[in-house]
Design a protein around this nucleic acid. Structure first.
Lengths: 362, 362
DNA sequence: CTGTTAGCGCCTTCAA
DNA sequence: TTGAAGGCGCTAACAG
C-alpha cells in the first residue's frame, strides 16, 4: 500500500495530473472552482501527500535549510538552533541538522551532503578554526561552499567568514562583535579595582576564542592594565574545569605562602559561560569561594546557566536572534525589492552584564 | 553554472550513465577497475555531487530521519537530539528537525512533512498529552503515523505510545520507567525523615508528568506516607519558578506563624530538573535556603545543571542513550537476521541520585 | 561487465 | 482554463 500519487488523485477526480497539480500546489493559474473542489476531495479521500522529493527534483529546490553546529547539546548551539528553526518555519522550510564537533573536514562533508540534498540555504554556526592542522580542510570547505553558492545556494556563517571563502554571491556573514564586547567587559572589570587577570581560552586558532581574548587584552590595555596571562584548554566545560583546578592551586599557594603584601586577587575571564561554570566548579571543589577568593566572568549569557549562584558575570549575546538573522539572511528576497541592492547585513549587539561573580567582597 | 549531473560525468568518461552510477554509488555490480577510475576522475574534475533528491525518487527512500521535539533549546531535548544525531550518523543518514512546542496538531504536521520528504524513519521525543482539548489532534496524529508506517515508514516514540496509534508494523516505543523511578525516588526521600511532600507537576494530561507524579505518590504510599499535594504549572522553568514562589510564601507563613510544634519541613518534588531549578530560584529569591528551609528534587539529571549548588537530587536518565536507542530501533535490520523475529525493545533504566539539595541539615 | 530502456512523481512549457 | 508531452537526475530491470 504505497502512498498515493498525484496521478491517482487526478484520475479519481477525473482530471489531468497537470490540473491536479495546479490545484493542490500554489500555481499561478486558477483552476475552475468547481473542478478544484473535486480534486481536493479526491486528494483528501486518498490521503494524498505530495512527494517532496519529486517536487524538489522538478523545480530543483527542496525547502530545506541546512544547519551546521559543533554539538546540538551545547546550549550555545541549541539556542542558535532554536532561532534557525523559528526562521525556517517563517519561510515554510524544514531544517536539516549536522553536527561536526568543530572539525572543518566534517563541516565540508556536511556542506556536500546539504548540497546533494539541494538545500536552499546553509547556516554555519560553529566557530571557525584557523589552526595550521585545519588549513587543508578549511580550503576544501571554502571550495565546497563556493561551489554551493555558484550553484545558487545561499549561505550564512555566524561569527567569522570561512577562511579562504571568496565572497561569492549569496554568501553572508553575521558578524558578532566578540572583540569589542570582550574589551568592554575587560574595561568594566578593571574599573578601579586592583586585580590580576587571567584568561581561560580555547585552543589557539579558534577564532571566536581568539577574538574574545584579543578584545579582553585590549580592554585591559585601555584601562592601563598589564596583559593577562592566558591558559589554553578545551572550549568546553571540561576545559574550564581543568583550568580552574590549575588556578585553584595557584590561588591557594599564593594565599598561604603570602609574603608581605598579599598578591591582588585573581579575576578570571573564561571565553564562554560553559567554561566559566566549569572553572567555578573546580574552584569550589578546591574549597575556594567566588567572589571571595577569586572573581570570574564568562561570555554568551547562556539561558540555562542564569540561575547559577553566584550569578555569573558575562556578556549577553542574543543567540536565538543570531540564528534567526543568519537564516533570514539566506532567504531569497521574494518580492521585486525596490532597487535596494545592498543586502543589509544584520547587526548583532551584545551587552556586558555584571553580576555577583565579579562583585567586590566587602 | 548548475551542478553537474551523472550524465555529464558519464559522457566525459565515455561510458553510460548506468555504469557511472554503478561506480559512484554502491551497486552490487563491480565495474572494471580500468573504467571505474576513469569515471571517478571525471566525477572529480567536474565536482560531481549526486542529487540526493533524484536518488531518493528513484529508490523511494531518502536517507533522512525525522526528529520531533518540543523545543530544541530545552536541554532535555537537546540531549536526546545528540543521541539521535549520533545514531543517524552510524546509519549514514541525516536528521530533519521539527519543533512543535508539544502541540499534537503541530506534531501531526511534522509527521506529514516528514512523510512528504519520504523520511526513512521518525523519532518522536516530545512527551505525549492526553488532555481532552488535544484529543482530536491526537487522533489525527495517530492516523498520520499509521499511514506513514503502512507506507513503510518506521517510527519510534520516546516514553509513551501516541494515544490511539494502532501498533502497526515498524512502530516502536522506547519505554522510560518514569513511574518506577519516581517511586524509588519517593522511597529514598521518605526514608526515615518526617517531611511534608509537595509535588510541582506539569499540566494534567501530560503523560510524562502524570507518570512521575503517580509513581511518586505510590512511593510515598509504600513508605507509609500520606499522598503529596500537587501544584500544577507549566512544564518548564517559568512554571517551576511560579510554583516556587507560592511555596516560599507558604513556608514563610508556616515558619513565622508557627503554633506549638513547627510543621515538618517541606520536601519538594519537581517533575523535571528545569522546573526544580526554577523553583529553587524562587525560594532563593524569597530568602529561603535549600536544604535548610526546604529540600527539593528534580528528574532527568540534565548535564548542564549538574554544577548547580546545592547540587540537585534527581533521577538520572540516559538521555543521549535514549535518543540513540530510539533511532536504532527504527533502523531496518539489514542482514537476514536468524529468525529473530522479536524486535527487542531496548530497555532504558535510570538511577535515583541523591545530592545535597535533599540532605538533612544537621 | 556494459549499455539500453523505463520509469520514480511532479512541474511546466506547449497546444487545444 | 484544461490536457498532453517532455524532462528534472538517478536507478533498476533487462538485453547484449
Amino acid at each position: 500500500m504505497a502512498a498515493s500519487t498525484l496521478t491517482e488523485v487526478a484520475r479519481l477526480a477525473g482530471v489531468s495530473p497537470a490540473t491536479a497539480s495546479r490545484v493542490l500546489n500554489g500555481s499561478a493559474r486558477k483552476p475552475g472552482k468547481d473542478i478544484a473542489d473535486r480534486v481536493r476531495q479526491a486528494a483528501e479521500s486518498l490521503g494524498y501527500i505530495p512527494n517532496a522529493q519529486a517536487q524538489g527534483l522538478a523545480k530543483s529546490s527542496s525547502g530545506l535549510i541546512g544547519l551546521i553546529v559543533h554539538d546540538i547539546a551545547d546550549p550555545y548551539f541549541a539556542a542558535i538552533a532554536r532561532g534557525v528553526q523559528a526562521a525556517a518555519r517563517e519561510q515554510r522550510k524544514m531544517v536539516l541538522l549536522a553536527t561536526t564537533g568543530g572539525a572543518p573536514g566534517e563541516e565540508r562533508e556536511a556542506v556536500a551532503a546539504f548540497a546533494a540534498r539541494r538545500a536552499d540555504s546553509i547556516v554555519i554556526a560553529g566557530s571557525r578554526s584557523c589552526r595550521t592542522e585545519d588549513q587543508d580542510d578549511n580550503t576544501e570547505l571554502a571550495a565546497e561552499l563556493d561551489r554551493y553558492c555558484r550553484n545558487g545556494g545561499r549561505v550564512a556563517v555566524v561569527g567569522h567568514a570561512v577562511v579562504g571563502a571568496t565572497a561569492a554571491e549569496g554568501y553572508h556573514v553575521v558578524a558578532v562583535p566578540n572583540q569589542e564586547l570582550a574589551g568592554a567587559l575587560a574595561g568594566e572589570l578593571a574599573a578601579g579595582r586592583d586585580r590580576d587577570f587571567v584568561i581561560i581560552g580555547g585552543p589557539e586558532g579558534l577564532l571566536t576564542s581568539d577574538d574574545r581574548i584579543r578584545g579582553f587584552q585590549e580592554g585591559l590595555a585601555r584601562a592601563g592594565r598589564a596583559p593577562a596571562e592566558i591558559l589554553r584548554t578545551a572550549f568546553n566545560r571540561a576545559g574550564g574545569y581543568e583550568a580552574g583546578l590549575q588556578l585553584a592551586a595557584r590561588i591557594k599557594a599564593g594565599a598561604s605562602g603570602g609574603g608581605e603584601a598579599a598578591a591582588p586577587k585573581l579575576c578570571i575571564f573564561a571565553v564562554n559561560d560553559v567554561m566559566a561554570i566549569g572553572a567555578s566548579a573546580a574552584l569550589r571543589a578546591e574549597g575556594l569561594r567566588i567572589p571571595r577568593d577569586a572573581t570570574i566572568a564568562g561570555f554568551d549569557d547562556i539561558e540555562t546557566l542564569r540561575d547559577f549562584r553566584p550569578a555569573l558575570s558575562t556578556v549577553r549575546l542574543p543567540l536565538e536572534e543570531i540564528g534567526r538573522l543568519a537564516t533570514r539572511a539566506t532567504a531569497r528576497l521574494s518580492g521585486g525589492s525596490d532597487a535596494d541592492e545592498d543586502e543589509e547585513q544584520p547587526t548583532v549587539t551584545g551587552e556586558v552584564t555584571l553580576r555577583r561573580s565579579t562583585e567586590a567582597v566587602t
